[in-house]
Write a protein that binds this DNA or RNA. Structure first.
Lengths: 236, 236
DNA sequence: CACCCTTAGTTTAAAATAAAAACTAACTTA
DNA sequence: TAAGTTAGTTTTTATTTTAAACTAAGGGTG
């Protein structure tokens, strides 16, 4: 130990740098989007990248807190659905040397986000997700990270209540079904869907209808207070 | 950036140290066990801990390689089932300061491991898993890491082919069923189990029977070459 | 204000699957 | 050769899914 610390402190011997990078998902006009920022500095200046940053060991008590800090800085959203996805670390992903990125994914309601495309000094934008990626080439290995997050999201949507977090606080069951269908890319049977949701028991009707289109109004629901993410015992 | 690097290099400002820690699972006498090592140095000297180590930025091309290196060093197993579980990082888990542990889980066939309880200079031992933990108190936050890995394992066993990796290369279907039953803690129906396995199509019969107990011999199977982990679309 | 159109939400009937149990097969030992 | 034991299959019954039809509740329109 003592011997090791006397070696010259090159990047090859010092610990890797650790960042937190977020795939922040939201629905923009019914379609799944991810928040990207345009980098202003090298490496990868002018490339789009996932929002992220170094862990501040003097400020962040733990990794989750670092992720929440990044999310709040970029979107002003404080209580999202936030889940650690996976860590990516190698010596090639950043030209400056060995780095580790702890990837998170966040699900927010676009309405809650305090930004619009191009509203910020640094360019911040919602980009639509097509298949398992996004149109522009990304900095670092962010397209790999993003693809992993998208797969994780799609996979979980199959058998969990996760998509509620993409909707505003109040929503209808047809709204919810539409989200599942958009993310999974297939139609689902109405009565089967409603049966699953009823069994899973994570939403409750709020007694006051809405969605007064020129047809039968739909019942409004909200997430049951204090209900964690529910996993169905079968694929939807 | 330039300004920051001129600050005194305290542990509060430098990047966190990054380790890789492994929950290595195997079956010992039909029961699920995990490999633990007794620490010889502070902090937590004489406590049992998950095998692990720092990332060697000069030697390991990426995090997976670091995990494989640790595994090979401790068990001599080279091609296990290895999966990243989650990263744990905060300022309290190691008294020396902010650290990140990237947790992996490995599934091996105990027969393959080049060690026995107490065979090594440093004490290395298979400990039985009871509920979601292990008898002795562990170093650092390793009991949290282990509990997370066990939950992940149990969860995946419900709907995947993962447990084959705990068996030796050749096994029978009753063997396989017994493993599922042991890990999940419940009996399963024989014909339903066989139907699932047949549909999942990740094992193949090798034409040569065995298990010549004093009753009908059971067909020997092996993992189909090049078959990835299969996920059932329903819970077993 | 009747009637049509559209979407919400429920019910019913047919098809597919799972669960349980019974049954057959193969081998050893007595 | 009969009994015991575990392997592996088949049959039967119950449950669940799937698909479709049906009822409900608006607003718009003539």
């Amino acid at each position: 130990m003592a011997g090791a610390s006397m070696l010259p402190l090159t990047t090859e011997i010092s610990p890797p740098n650790v960042t937190v990078d977020l795939s922040i998902f939201a629905l923009v006009e019914q379609a799944l989007h991810v928040l990207l920022m345009k980098r202003t500095t090298d490496p990868f200046a002018d490339r789009w990248a996932l929002p992220g940053g170094y862990i501040h060991t003097n400020e962040d008590p733990d990794v989750d807190a670092a992720a929440r800090r990044v999310l709040k800085d970029k979107t002003a959203v404080e209580t999202p659905y936030l889940e650690q996805v996976q860590s990516f670390g190698d010596r090639a992903r950043d030209p400056r040397g060995w780095t580790v990125s702890i990837a998170y994914m966040a699900l927010i309601s676009a309405a809650d986000a305090g930004l619009q495309c191009g509203s910020n000094a640094a360019e911040v934008c919602w980009w639509p997700i097509e298949d398992d990626c996004v149109a522009p080439p990304l900095a670092f290995d962010h397209s790999v990270i993003l693809a992993t997050s998208i797969r994780r999201l799609r996979n979980k949507v199959e058998y969990s209540s996760l998509p509620v977090h993409l909707l505003p606080e109040r929503f209808t069951l047809p709204d919810l079904q539409a989200i599942y269908e958009r993310i999974l890319g297939r139609r689902m049977d109405k009565s089967a869907f409603r049966k699953r949701i009823a069994e899973a028991d994570f939403v409750e009707a709020v007694p006051g209808e809405k969605r007064a289109a020129s047809n039968r109004p739909a019942q409004i629901y909200r997430l049951k207070p204090g209900s964690a993410t529910i996993f169905f015992d079968r694929t939807l």
